[in-house]
Each structure stands twice: as C-alpha cells, then as structure tokens.
C-alpha cells in the first residue's frame, strides 16, 4: 500500500508523518508537492499538520486553493483514503471535504499537551484496530481546534456515526473539563459520509512509538493497513 504526504509551503509535520509510515510501518511513502496535479498510484494521502501558507488569513483558507487540492477531492470521490491531521483537518474543512469550521481555541492560546480521546466509531478505515469506546491518549498542538458546525450538520454527524473521536477524561467521560479548545460536543475528529476521509486535531504521528512516551496513535495507521488488506482480499475474491 502506498502513502503520500502532501507538502504545502508551511507544512511542518510532513516529515513526522513520513517517518511513521516509512520507519514504523515500513510501507512505501512519498512526499507530494502542493503544485502537483495528480495522485495516481497512491492509496492513502495524508495532509499533515503545520501552518500552510503561514495561516495568516484563516487556517487552511489558502491551502484549499493549492493546485493539488482538486486532485485530492477527486481522489476522495474515487474512494481513496484521505487523512487530515491538525492543519490537514483544517484544510479539509475549508476545502469542503468535511463539514463544519474551526474557530480559535476558547482559551485564545495555542495549546500543546496530551489529551484523552474516546473512540466513538471503531468501524472505519482509520479506527478498526481500536475498540469501540476505547479511551486513548494523543497530543494536541493547535491554536484553532475549536470545532463548529450548525445544529443540522451536527445532528447528521451524530446520526451517521461520523464523529470519530471526542475529547474525554482519563475515565472516558466526555466532560467539559476534558475539552481543550471549546469544540462543540468535544469533537476531536470526524469523517465524511463514505468514511474514507478523516480529519482530526490530535497528532497520531506523535505517539506511534514507545520512546515518545506511548504509542496509542500507531493503531490508527495500523487500521489503515488492515482495512487496505481486507479491501484487497475482497477485490481478489470479487475478481474470482
């Protein structure tokens, strides 16, 4: 399975994502420059964290116009896996690949620390190696992670089980005190209708190796590999 890590000017978690795919998972991965126009040959595309174009206007607001983003939309429409982490999530929102918007953290400060997350839906290409309701840890590092969506969208996300991660306490309680940024309903990550596009604010690539403290993020990447393996099997069976 081949991964691509998109590099926008100002991306700064691109090397970290590359490292995890290459060194931890041992799978093929390439950087994809923002000016490229196609994504042929890739199976999963990661939009990494950072400050694309400096994020001087609104996070992700410029990056959505990058030449590559049309290809990302088409890739997603074909069922390709798209993972947006932090700034990548913000870009997916601006690009309309995921619903809703980000506001500044309610603290009005950048926040970098570990959070607990509850896995709300373990039946996606990105979460199938977690247990439903499992409480995991991941670091956050953002100034604008305060997720907002109108009530109809929110109801739809809930109804369709598209809220994938919520901030919670260590005991799994989705409580206001566990919310690091003011996000509606403690939302930390959501997916699209088909489940092949995931955006999340926490950084799984920062917790995929024991030496960094814990490796709860690794299962997210392992989920992608697992899902891909099953898909391949189905395809082989279908072709007979």
């Amino acid at each position: 399975m081949k991964f691509g890590v998109v590099v926008f000017p100002g991306s700064n978690c691109d090397m970290d994502c590359y490292h995890v795919i290459d060194q931890v998972l041992g799978h093929p991965v390439e950087y994809i420059w923002h000016r490229e126009q196609g994504l042929a040959g890739y199976d999963c595309v990661i939009l990494p964290g950072g400050f694309s174009y400096g994020d001087y206007l609104r996070t992700g607001a410029i990056a959505r116009f990058a030449p590559l983003m049309d290809a990302v939309s088409a890739f997603a429409a074909r069922g390709g896996l798209v993972l947006g982490i932090c700034n990548g999530f913000q870009i997916l929102l601006e690009a309309g690949l995921l619903p809703g918007a980000m506001r500044r953290n309610d603290s009005l400060q950048f926040r970098c620390h570990d959070v607990y997350l509850r896995v709300e839906n373990a039946n996606t290409p990105f979460t199938n190696r977690y247990r439903p309701g499992q409480v995991i840890r991941m670091p956050i590092a953002h100034g604008e992670g305060n997720y907002y969506a109108d009530p109809e969208t929110l109801a739809e996300l809930n109804r369709e089980h598209r809220i994938i991660f919520r901030y919670c306490t260590g005991d799994g309680d989705v409580a206001p005190e566990a919310n690091p940024n003011g996000s509606l309903e403690n939302i930390a990550g959501i997916c699209n209708k088909d489940g092949n596009v995931l955006g999340l604010m926490p950084h799984p690539e920062r917790c995929s190796e024991e030496i960094l403290g814990y490796d709860d993020g690794k299962a997210l990447f392992m989920s992608v590999l697992h899902w891909w393996g099953l898909k391949r099997e189905r395809e082989v069976v279908a072709r007979g």
Binding site: N12, C13, M15, D16, H19, V20, G49, Q109, F110, R111, C112, H113, P139, A141, H203, E205, R206, E209, I211, L212, G213
Partner: peptide, 19 residues
C-alpha cells in the same frame, strides 16, 4: 511553568523523549 510551555509546540519533529 506549564502555563508557559503548553503554549509552545514542544513535540513537533517527534524527537522529544523527555518533555
């Protein structure tokens, strides 16, 4: 000094073993 350093991204580059 957590009030200070939680405003700094101290983990990017994934090398920070002791924070």
């Amino acid at each position: 000094k957590e009030w200070v350093y939680r405003q700094y991204d101290h983990m990017v580059m994934t090398n920070t073993v002791v924070r």
